Amino acid sequence: MAKRNLSTVTEFILVVFTDHPELAVPLFLVFLSFYLVTFLGNGGMIILIQVDAQLHTPMYFFLSHLAFLDACCASVITPQILATLATDKIVISYGCRAVQFSFFTICAGTECYLLSVMAYDRFVAISNPLHYNMTMTPGTCRVFLASAFICGVSGAILHTMCTFTLSFCCDSQINFFFCDLSPLLKLACSSMTQTEIVILLCAKCMFLANVMVILISYMLIIRAILRVKLAGG
């Protein structure tokens, strides 16, 4: 199979919507409605948390940023899908794909770390309610939030560098609605042994770390609840 060097790849072709052009309008309306519900719902939650002083607590502080990341994640993908359905433009530049992939990975990765932080926050609130305000101070919350973003951005940079330093084949057609990791790796012509090892190790470490934190936090929460006397509970 013919190969292209990374510097000569200038575009990718999305072919997922080309087989059934008659579905373009219904799909456009479905994606648009989902996007509006997601964006307005998360935006409304953020505004409500900001304007209501009673919601200025660590739990809602993290929840507002989770809503922000969820809205950003949808905004990275959905507008491109809507533009593709509305204009039949299926050719996407290489640079746009790299930027979209990077931002999507940042949002998705940061969400995972933020969910772990929120699980730990609930553990502290339930197991040590009297010391909760002393433990989860505004400064501590900001440190946890910054740590989640740093981990998410670091993982995204690693994934993006590993993916977009590969050499892609002449057939740059992607049978997917955006340039996700799996479809991009299928187009790679160069050896992916080291790249796959790095990506898999990074993904597994991130997944296992977050899952362990969440599971341990909720196991400790359940234990704390079971220790509460019936009358006191």
Rank of each mutant, 00 (worst) to 15 (best):
A2W: 04
A2E: 13
R4E: 11
N5H: 11
N5A: 11
L6H: 11
S7H: 10
F12M: 00
V15W: 02
V16L: 12
D19M: 07
D19L: 08
A24I: 02
P26A: 03
F28V: 00
V30P: 04
V30E: 07
F31A: 07
S33R: 01
F34G: 12
F34R: 05
Y35Q: 04
L36H: 06
L36W: 00
V37K: 01
T38K: 07
T38I: 09
F39H: 09
L40Q: 00
G41N: 02
N42Y: 01
N42T: 13
G43E: 09
G44K: 01
Q50D: 08
V51M: 10
A53I: 11
H56M: 02
H56E: 02
Y60R: 06
F68S: 08
L69N: 02
D70G: 14
D70I: 13
D70V: 13
C72F: 07
A74M: 08
S75K: 04
T78H: 05
T78A: 09
P79K: 00
Q80P: 07
A83N: 12
T84A: 12
D88S: 15
D88E: 11
K89W: 04
I92N: 01
G95S: 14
G95Y: 07
G95W: 06
A98L: 13
Q100G: 15
F103G: 04
F103T: 13
F103K: 10
F104Q: 03
C107S: 06
A108W: 05
A108S: 14
G109R: 01
T110L: 10
E111H: 09
E111Y: 04
E111F: 11
L114I: 02
L114S: 02
L114M: 10
S116N: 03
M118R: 03
Y120E: 07
Y120T: 12
V124I: 06
V124G: 04
S127A: 15
N128D: 10
Y132E: 06
N133R: 12
M136I: 12
T137M: 07
V143R: 09
L145P: 06
A146L: 15
A146W: 12
A146H: 09
I150G: 14
I150N: 10
I150W: 05
C151W: 03
V153P: 08
L158W: 04
T160R: 05
M161H: 12
T165P: 05
C169K: 11
D171T: 01
I174R: 02
I174W: 03
F176M: 11
F178H: 14
D180R: 11
K186N: 13
L187Y: 03
I197E: 00
V198G: 00
C205Q: 00
M206P: 00
L208C: 13
M212Y: 09
I214L: 10
I216F: 06
S217T: 05
Y218I: 09
I221E: 04
I221T: 05
I221G: 06
I222G: 02
R223L: 12
A224M: 02
I225R: 14
K229R: 13
L230F: 12
G232L: 11
G232V: 05
